[in-house]
Write a protein that binds this DNA or RNA. Structure first.
Lengths: 244, 244
DNA sequence: CGCTTGTTTGACGCTAATCAATCGTTGTGG
DNA sequence: CCACAACGATTGATTAGCGTCAAACAAGCG
């Protein structure tokens, strides 16, 4: 593994200085690797949650199936993300699968314990990240509960690109979107049909361009206005974090 | 303050053993008290977020106003809750106000720092609580994005009573609900009109009884079935928590 | 008593769901 | 290389549920 810096370190380094000691603490999390083909199930809801995962490569989604057969996508996961905080409960509350070929680094809850014991600073950061996810979930709720189909789709696309930019600073305004319209709809409470129509609308308004599964955001400002989008990823108050 | 045990300690004690040392650490958080009349604003979104709060008495709600004048209620807060984790960002992302007369104990972010430095175990618990809030937010998203008005209202009422039971073990199946139907609607993405009709439906089905602002859940099981409700509050895996 | 605030009820319209047919692309096997 | 199957995207017609508007009703309060 003569590798460039791990995505996880890049991601965390956005917020606090990851020195050698912390980096060593984190490498433990990425010691093991598991490869997944496209559309492979990682775990099912109800499974015992032994592991969390760092995403090393590829896209993954967590989702739950409703009693009536419909599906709800809870979250998409990209390189640098940590999956499975929810697993601190007894069981996995959701299914997890890949939507492209990819690599995960599984690690156990006990490794978290080590972080909490050895680094108050890193603990505070993990806590902050978890809180941020809550804020993002609230934003999504706002979009889903209060906005029309076009605005919801705009929100979805913007949130994706902002998240991808965290670990990929070379990301411009174009990205590959390896999800079906049904999966997109399951993320924002729409049917595949409505997603298709909303896409047509955004394309017609010259806000978005599509070629195959590649999405280009032509006018980010207008898109942000359309759904009242606010960036939750770049700024975080770390001033109160304890030193190690 | 010749007081019974603090609500915060009761709440946290559900999950880990709060010994004298930890209790002392926590009393700092409840050192100061501030009284609020009904319908008093605690802070506005955009305010500098110096403080977090422990709810000592009364109901509070956090909310944001949309550009078109509509409002969205993010969360209701009850005695024992900690408000303001979101404030670890630079600004308050939401408004906060009381819906009854109440008492808050403000404390600063620096007090959190102390907890993270002095107690890995408590850090892990706070982290877990934050993650739980995420899971709850996901459940709410499921209800709001995928269910009809009656099911959404059922979800709202059930989630309330389950949360009230955390700190009030004498809570049966009846509780006082100090919110207008507009506020309820703003919590679950409905108009006041639809909330009214959904209430009529639940009452007609003998699932709920209303007298003034008091709500009695007559048939919790049917309500849970109606909205596929799952309790997220009573079980939590604390086995991986570090010792202090 | 009259004002204010919240709830209820009815009529109507709009948005997205549903149902269904068609089109396009990809991958497979003859 | 072509035929066909499988899957996803698109488009159209229809429907259902909730929003909107508006009026009536109820309860508290000065």
């Amino acid at each position: 593994m003569v590798n460039k810096k791990s995505c996880l370190v890049i991601m965390l380094n956005n917020y606090i200085d990851i020195d050698d000691r912390l980096e060593k603490l984190l490498t433990i999390l990425e010691k093991n690797e598991r490869y997944y083909a496209e559309d492979a199930v990682v775990h099912y809801s109800g499974d015992e949650s032994k592991n969390l995962y760092v995403v090393k490569e590829g896209w993954f989604i967590s989702y739950t199936d409703l009693y009536d057969g419909r599906r709800m996508v809870i979250k998409t996961h990209h390189p640098g993300d940590i999956i499975g905080f929810e697993g601190i409960y007894h069981e996995q509350p959701a299914d997890l699968k890949s939507t492209t070929a990819g690599v995960l680094c599984p690690f156990s809850k006990q490794n978290l314990d080590e972080i909490f014991r050895c680094s108050p600073k890193l603990s505070a950061l993990l806590f902050s990240i978890s809180v941020r996810e809550q804020i993002v979930a609230t934003d999504r709720l706002k979009a889903v509960s209060r906005m029309g189909a076009q605005a919801r789709l705009a929100y979805f696309l913007l949130d994706l690109i902002f998240r991808l930019r965290i670990t990929n600073s070379s990301m411009t305004n174009e990205f590959h979107l390896p999800l079906t319209q049904t999966e997109i709809g399951d993320s924002i409470g729409l049917t595949n049909v409505s997603v298709s129509r909303a896409f047509s609308y955004l394309v017609g308004m010259q806000l978005v361009k599509r070629t195959n599964a590649s999405i280009k955001l032509l006018d980010e400002l207008s898109l942000m206005k359309l759904c009242d989008y606010e960036d939750r990823y770049t700024k975080m108050d770390t001033s109160w974090f304890p030193c190690d």
